[in-house]
């Protein structure tokens, strides 16, 4: 009996840890859109299709390289997989006012939000940019990647295709 109790406690603990380590979803944190309106990041949706969330900054070269590279093929990605890309800038008040002019000049069609005192970054464990997350149709983070080197967009597309089937 005693053994069984110990076993059940062990299993309970195991279950708790299982349920903890399971799904990672978006935290409830407010960010600003390009009209300076506050929105809760949890409210973003894409009709059950995948969402890519990419943390970037106007001063970050690899971030801009990643987002400019994807911008060229974004329409194809959207047509093929229904994916939506949300680019979250961590520019603080030194450079936040450059976000909208830079985005427009570059012709990006992404949804852009600003996390200027890094509340969302902290909540999602983002310590350096770029840091890219992929969410499936249920809003569960199924893949993440730190940094960007040329060609990483191919792996991202593979991951998106994998879950959009």
């Amino acid at each position: 009996m005693k053994n069984k109790i110990i076993l059940s406690i062990c299993m309970s603990v195991l279950f708790i840890s299982f349920s903890f380590s399971q799904d990672k979803t978006l935290p409830s944190v407010k960010v600003k859109d390009l009209k300076n309106k506050m929105i809760n990041i949890q409210s973003v949706e894409n009709d059950g299709n995948p969402i890519v969330i990419s943390f970037w900054a106007t001063w970050c070269k690899p971030c801009k390289k990643e987002l400019n590279t994807i911008a060229e093929v974004y329409e194809d990605w959207q047509d093929d997989t229904g994916v939506k890309l949300i680019a979250i800038s961590i520019d603080d008040s030194r450079s936040a006012s450059k976000v909208k002019p830079y985005v427009n000049a570059s012709g990006w069609e992404y949804d852009i939000y600003i996390d200027s005192n890094r509340e969302l970054s902290r909540a999602m464990g983002v310590s350096t940019v770029p840091h890219t997350f992929l969410l499936d149709g249920n809003g569960i983070i199924v893949w993440e990647h730190k940094g960007y080197i040329d060609g990483d967009e191919d792996e991202l597309l593979e991951q998106i295709e994998h879950i959009s089937k």
Binding site: S97, K100, P101, Y102, N104, A105, G107
Partner: peptide, 8 residues
Amino acid sequence: TYSQKGLG
């Protein structure tokens, strides 16, 4: 700031 498509 001012921006339009292609210019900021």
